[in-house]
């Protein structure tokens, strides 16, 4: 009976300690100024993307030749769906096909964020699996890492361009074309954690009591990779949004009728000298969003992994 009470006490102590540790980590993350600033701006952009239909926008694909190349902030009469003419103010002007840039920029937030988040999640999922397995199973390690070295030697944007040229333009192909160059970077990170953790006494203990390899990987090694992966994930997200914009801007990314920040800028290229607003508004949104994600990542790195923060 007494033994059971003691067990209970021990479990309670362990649970509180774990809770305290977790709280310490969470409050450290929450207290970090960069995390707060970055998270607020990213959340705002997500909200803008989600609520785009409610923010006074019109159909971002609607072409209206009557109001081509309108400068920002100008009011023009526009034919309504009912057939009546009514004045409308174009906050960010229109493009060469008369599409409302304000609406396109707001809807464009959706694509950028979807690409950024999807690339981060998918490349981490794939990289984590490969990294865990190859870091733990020695004979596989050499082969996998040589292949990864080869992939890393190809500049990321160039590799993405090559893949898009093969797979054709589209949201899914663009996402995967950006994922592929990111995979070796995630694999290296995961593998370096695995190599240092596998020598820890608790992993040896787990092996000695006969825990199976998959269970060791999931229960003992995986949790150690999470903090660095979250940090890496934010940086992948930021660079993925930039690469998507670059691909669209070069005209080889997402099809041109879809409103993405890169596409809006691509259409503005030829009119840029007279109508710089076609490039500057989407450019500003893109830069602010990427900046916010980068600041968020810096903050997460400092609070989740103080050692790493000092090094760079």
């Amino acid at each position: 009976m007494t033994a059971r009470v003691e067990d209970q006490v021990e479990i309670d102590v362990a649970a509180t300690a774990a809770a305290a540790r977790k709280q310490g980590l969470l409050s450290r993350v929450a207290k970090n100024q960069s995390v707060a600033i970055g998270a607020v701006i990213v959340a705002l952009m997500m909200l803008i993307g989600l609520a785009a239909p409610l923010l006074g926008t019109v159909d971002p694909k609607a072409i209206n030749p009557v109001v081509r190349n309108v400068k920002p902030g100008i009011e023009r009469n526009v034919m309504q769906a009912s057939g009546e003419m009514a004045p409308r103010k174009f906050w960010m002007g229109t493009d060469s096909l008369g599409r409302d840039i304000y609406s396109r920029v707001l809807y464009g937030a959706r694509v950028s964020l979807i690409v950024g988040i999807a690339v981060a999640v998918i490349s981490i999922a794939i990289g984590l699996t490969i990294g865990l397995v190859s870091g733990y199973i020695r004979w596989l390690d050499g082969i996998v890492m040589r292949f990864m070295d080869g992939m890393m030697a190809i500049p990321a944007i160039l590799l993405a361009i090559g893949l898009v040229s093969l797979w054709g333009a589209g949201l899914v192909t663009v996402i995967f074309a950006i994922v592929v160059p990111e995979i070796p970077r995630v694999v290296r990170l995961v593998r370096s954690v695995v190599l240092s953790i596998r020598e820890e006494p608790y992993v040896e203990a787990a092996i000695s009591v006969g825990t199976s390899t998959p269970l060791i990987l999931i229960r003992h090694i995986l949790p150690n990779t999470l903090a660095p992966l979250i940090v890496q994930g934010t940086f992948i997200c930021a660079s993925a949004m930039l690469v998507e914009a670059i691909l669209s801007f070069l005209g080889i990314g997402i099809p041109p009728d879809v409103p993405t920040w890169g596409n809006i800028m691509a259409e503005g290229r030829s009119y840029f000298r007279i109508h710089p607003h076609m490039i500057m508004f989407p450019g500003l949104f893109l830069a602010v969003t990427v900046l916010a994600v980068n600041i968020l990542g810096d903050g997460l790195r400092d609070s989740l992994d103080p050692r790493l923060g000092k090094r760079i």
């Binding site: 930021a238 670059i246 840029f272 710089p276 490039i279 450019g283 830069a287 990427v290 900046l291």
Partner: peptide, 18 residues
Amino acid sequence: SVLGFSVPVFVVGYLLIY
């Protein structure tokens, strides 16, 4: 340096041209 990583190359380019 954080800003330099965040602003797309072509936006900087067009801004400078303008």
